[in-house]
Lab assay of single mutants.
Amino acid sequence: VTTYKLVINGKTLKGETTTKAVDAETAEKAFKQYANDNGVDGVWTYDDATKTFTVTEMV
């Protein structure tokens, strides 16, 4: 189990959260659900070296 981080660069919501998951795919599903629940829709990137997902909403 690995800890993954999500950085949110939203128009109205900004911040970070973490989740523990067995792999990046599982973490991504959890983060996308979290973003969807919070009304964040944007471009996703993932950095495997730092285990960090970033979602950026276009203005």
Rank of each mutant, 00 (worst) to 15 (best):
residue 44 W to V: 02
residue 14 K to P: 06
residue 33 Q to N: 08
residue 39 G to M: 07
residue 2 T to P: 06
residue 29 K to F: 07
residue 32 K to S: 04
residue 28 E to D: 04
residue 31 F to Q: 00
residue 27 A to W: 01
residue 28 E to N: 05
residue 13 L to C: 12
residue 7 V to K: 08
residue 9 N to V: 15
residue 21 A to S: 06
residue 53 F to W: 06
residue 16 E to P: 03
residue 16 E to A: 08
residue 48 D to A: 12
residue 18 T to N: 06
residue 48 D to Y: 07
residue 6 L to A: 02
residue 48 D to R: 07
residue 9 N to A: 09
residue 29 K to N: 06
residue 50 T to W: 04
residue 18 T to M: 12
residue 19 T to F: 13
residue 55 V to S: 02
residue 12 T to Y: 14
residue 42 G to H: 02
residue 32 K to C: 04
residue 5 K to Y: 13
residue 49 A to H: 12
residue 24 A to R: 13
residue 37 D to N: 14
residue 5 K to S: 06
residue 54 T to P: 00
residue 38 N to H: 14
residue 46 Y to I: 01
residue 49 A to F: 09
residue 29 K to V: 07
residue 17 T to Q: 10
residue 56 T to F: 07
residue 21 A to Y: 04
residue 22 V to K: 08
residue 42 G to K: 01
residue 18 T to E: 15
residue 53 F to G: 00
residue 51 K to R: 13
residue 45 T to M: 11
residue 2 T to L: 14
residue 25 E to S: 13
residue 32 K to A: 05
residue 32 K to N: 04
residue 4 Y to H: 02
residue 4 Y to P: 00
residue 59 V to I: 11
residue 41 D to S: 15
residue 41 D to W: 13
residue 39 G to S: 07
residue 30 A to V: 14
residue 38 N to D: 03
residue 18 T to L: 08
residue 5 K to Q: 05
residue 32 K to Q: 08
residue 46 Y to H: 02
residue 41 D to C: 13
residue 50 T to V: 05
residue 43 V to E: 10
residue 21 A to L: 03
residue 17 T to C: 12
residue 46 Y to S: 01
residue 8 I to L: 09
residue 7 V to F: 09
residue 45 T to L: 07
residue 11 K to E: 08
residue 37 D to W: 07
residue 2 T to A: 10
residue 40 V to H: 04
residue 37 D to P: 02
residue 47 D to I: 05
residue 59 V to G: 15
residue 38 N to T: 07
residue 21 A to E: 04
residue 30 A to E: 09
residue 21 A to P: 01
residue 14 K to Q: 09
residue 40 V to C: 04
residue 32 K to D: 02
residue 37 D to Y: 08
residue 50 T to G: 04
residue 3 T to G: 04
residue 56 T to Y: 10
residue 5 K to W: 09
residue 15 G to L: 14
residue 26 T to R: 06
residue 52 T to D: 01
residue 27 A to S: 02
residue 55 V to A: 03
residue 58 M to N: 14
residue 52 T to Q: 04
residue 52 T to W: 02
residue 35 A to K: 01
residue 27 A to E: 00
residue 33 Q to R: 12
residue 7 V to W: 05
residue 6 L to Y: 01
residue 18 T to Y: 14
residue 34 Y to K: 03
residue 23 D to M: 04
residue 24 A to V: 12
residue 25 E to I: 12
residue 36 N to H: 13
residue 13 L to F: 15
residue 58 M to D: 12
residue 36 N to D: 06
residue 11 K to G: 07
residue 55 V to K: 01
residue 3 T to W: 12
residue 11 K to C: 15
residue 34 Y to C: 03
residue 18 T to I: 08
residue 57 E to W: 12
